[in-house]
Design a binder for these strands. Structure first.
Lengths: 124, 124
DNA sequence: ATAACATATGAACAATTGTTCATATGTTAT
DNA sequence: ATAACATATGAACAATTGTTCATATGTTAT
């Protein structure tokens, strides 16, 4: 009977280098796989300068699609596509007034997250 | 003499919909283009679940490449490539001890950023 | 009903990205 | 010097992504 009973994470490295005690301790304190995945998805949304600009613009004021396109010197279509992404992540909400649709921020954490990110960037 | 003197952000939308006053106010409060770009680059680094996992693991303890590969059940090569990305963004630092190289976090903001991100995700 | 405006959306394309594979580099014990 | 280990790295490939273009949908004034 060969020792193939521990399939998962067995022969990843296979060497002696692994610090079992540390790895085990770390493993116990890791958040759920799903949450880590969702967190990556959230940051992926922040990981595009067009979306960053849209969000930062909305910090200041609610705006319509046309305003944002004009402000960022981009196509209405490009902005619409990105707003859809932001809305899907519940970062932005919209309200209609006649023909125009106004977008605004839907989450209070975003500004803090961005400011902390700025701190990292503007260091040293 | 035609009115082609305002090239930039002129015919983006071209319609009447633009709220000049709001756009102007927003424009004045926007951070520098470069900073916005760098911020997006930073979040892009966070926008991958492998890197998220590596960082979260390092919250708990310094670890060597082999440990991380084992913990995440991934190739040593894959982890090495990602650590390089993290190092380039100054999120992680490394120290050598004999043959093994230990990685640890290099920035104090990361944890706060991640925790705020988690709050957004785990809402409603 | 119709024309004009504001926004949304699908397909297509170029560009970017994460992993794998093979192999190079660096370190230690012998 | 050499073998074994730990890590780094380049090329290749599939997969993902942002913008453009054309056009659809929704609203209002006439």
């Amino acid at each position: 009977m060969s020792m193939n009973n521990k399939k998962k994470k067995a022969e990843t490295c296979g060497q002696i280098c692994i610090h079992d005690d540390i790895v085990e301790k770390v493993q116990q304190n890791m958040p759920e796989e799903n949450n880590l995945y969702d967190l990556a998805e959230l940051f992926k949304v922040f990981g595009d300068s067009t979306r960053i600009k849209i969000i930062w613009a909305l910090f200041e004021s609610e705006m319509c699609v046309c305003d944002i396109a004009y402000l960022l010197n981009m196509t209405q279509s490009a902005i619409s596509h990105q707003l859809r992404v932001l809305k899907a992540s519940k970062l932005v909400r919209s309200r209609r007034s006649g023909k125009t649709i106004y977008y605004s921020l839907a989450d209070s954490h975003i500004k803090q997250i961005f400011e902390l990110g700025m701190e990292h960037i503007t260091e040293e």
